[in-house]
Design a protein around this nucleic acid. Sequence first.
DNA 1: GTTACTGCAAAAACTTTGCATTATT
DNA 2: AATAATGCAAAGTTTTTGCAGTAAC
Lengths: 130, 130
Amino acid sequence: MNKKKLTRYGSIILNLISENDVFLSAQEIYLKMRELSYPVGLATIYRQLQVLLDNHLIDAIKSESGEVIYKQCKKTSHHHHVICIKCGKSQEILEPEIELWTRRVAKKLGYLPMNHTIEIFGHCQQCQTP
Amino acid sequence: MNKKKLTRYGSIILNLISENDVFLSAQEIYLKMRELSYPVGLATIYRQLQVLLDNHLIDAIKSESGEVIYKQCKKTSHHHHVICIKCGKSQEILEPEIELWTRRVAKKLGYLPMNHTIEIFGHCQQCQTP
DNA sequence: GTTACTGCAAAAACTTTGCATTATT
DNA sequence: AATAATGCAAAGTTTTTGCAGTAAC
């Protein structure tokens, strides 16, 4: 058994993430925790985020700028996201056909696909009308 | 005019990249340049890679581990890649349908799509048979 | 002789790690 | 008391920036 358990701060972080509709970076979570007066260190944030990931309680993707951002998704199975580049709000993409597409394309080129990243960035409905 | 020009090292970097079939990171390019006895600094590598990108002479994507990697692509228009996670070899994906798919999916969710990333990671033909 | 490029060092930003201290059981 | 979690500081990585020196035109 390689899995570490959720700790006090782990649950608090999970709550914080699950209340939010946007992807948050570890740094943002750290700041929010400090705002909420939890005397938590950044290292703990990173360590507990890893535990949450290992237990599939949250999802992580890479932002456009390259940092890892976290969110709790409704779908438990593999999926992708549309992310607003203005407000950060994201929605899950529920299109199984794309999984077949990646497999088909990879195989056509002689590759055995193991993994893929698909992210769509744009403006959400609210952020389109200023 | 905001574009900087290609310099002596820029051309050498472009040659190095165009001779390679795999995506290279700035750090790898730096090492290869030093191996070839060019007394070039890492900062210059980064600065000239940016110039090469601005002039669309090379393409860049993010690797699985998050660092930016560079390659000269045959296709000049927007496209995606399958990348071997063992040897690094990549192939360009020539499927216009996926562009329509991302637009359609984003719009269905109320988003105005601006940008997207699609990368497939796996094992290439040679790396499948050890 | 100006202008632009480069090297070096320093800094910035994100993340990981080591270790002494503190909390949990 | 033993075990595990935490905070802090330090270090690791990738990338950017400032500036003095050098090359290019």
